[in-house]
Write a protein that binds this DNA or RNA. Structure first.
Length: 221
DNA sequence: CTCCAGAAAT
DNA sequence: ATTTCGGGAG
């Protein structure tokens, strides 16, 4: 078993099942993926609620509405002018790709490339949609993943998205369910212990496996 | 590397 | 008052 698989076992044992993004619509995953870009999820929930209250929670409705009305709804998620453009582009792509049925019928790589071509959807947002919306086995790399695993010492902090993703995927079974769970565990660890500032290394479940954590402990003793 | 430009935590 | 947040484009 490789390092990434072992770290998953440690995390899962310590933090337990997380169960993320389970019972939402596929379209909501797409909307969430755009709105959560450099924004806290709490704020994204407000934006989604406001879209629902305005009866705009469908690709056709968002495209038919005045741009200013959509922008007003999603304001709580920040960067609302840019995100309105990105959300519109995502809705256009949703319809152009045949909606839920059309996208569900596409092979993973073809769907990934089609989504990457959309203005406003980068690799992380696309992989959110693939994994959480369409249950495809792609590993999502985010800021938490970079921070945690570079501190542990098993990845290069300057490595690109695709390189990091391949490191994880090469070491783990091709299983959407586990990728889902692993990413959720990473986020939880990043929020609770492996924070950007003042990480709680002393209480971290991965302390014994982490280069940064061991150095931190030695310094404080 | 800079811009984008809101809310909650610190 | 500053930083951070399920980032991406120019």
């Amino acid at each position: 078993m490789g390092a990434f698989a072992e770290l998953y076992e440690d995390l899962h044992g310590a933090l337990g099942p997380q169960a993320w993004w389970p019972a939402e619509s596929r379209f909501e995953v797409l909307v969430g993926a755009v709105l959560t870009q450099n924004a806290a999820w709490r704020n994204v929930e407000q934006a989604i609620t406001r879209l629902r209250d305005a009866a705009l929670f469908a690709p056709e409705a968002i495209l038919a509405a005045p741009v200013a009305r959509v922008a007003e709804c999603i304001r709580p998620s920040g960067y609302y002018n840019i995100k309105t453009q990105r959300l519109r582009a995502a809705c256009e792509a949703w319809l152009a790709l045949g909606g839920e049925q059309g996208m569900a019928a596409m092979p993973t790589l073809a769907l990934r490339n089609a989504l990457l071509a959309v203005h406003g959807l980068g690799p992380e947002s696309v992989d959110d949609v693939l994994l959480y919306g369409f249950e495809r086995p792609v590993f999502v790399i985010d800021a938490y993943t970079r921070r945690i695993f570079s501190r542990i010492g098993v990845v290069d902090p300057r490595a690109g998205y695709d390189t990091l993703q391949q490191q994880f995927q090469a070491d783990l079974p091709v299983d959407a369910q586990q990728f889902n769970e692993y990413h959720a565990l990473i986020v939880q660890l990043g929020k609770s212990f492996c924070r950007p500032r003042q990480p709680r290394c002393g209480d971290c479940p991965l302390l014994s496996r982490c280069a940064h954590g061991r150095a931190e402990m030695n310094q404080r003793s």
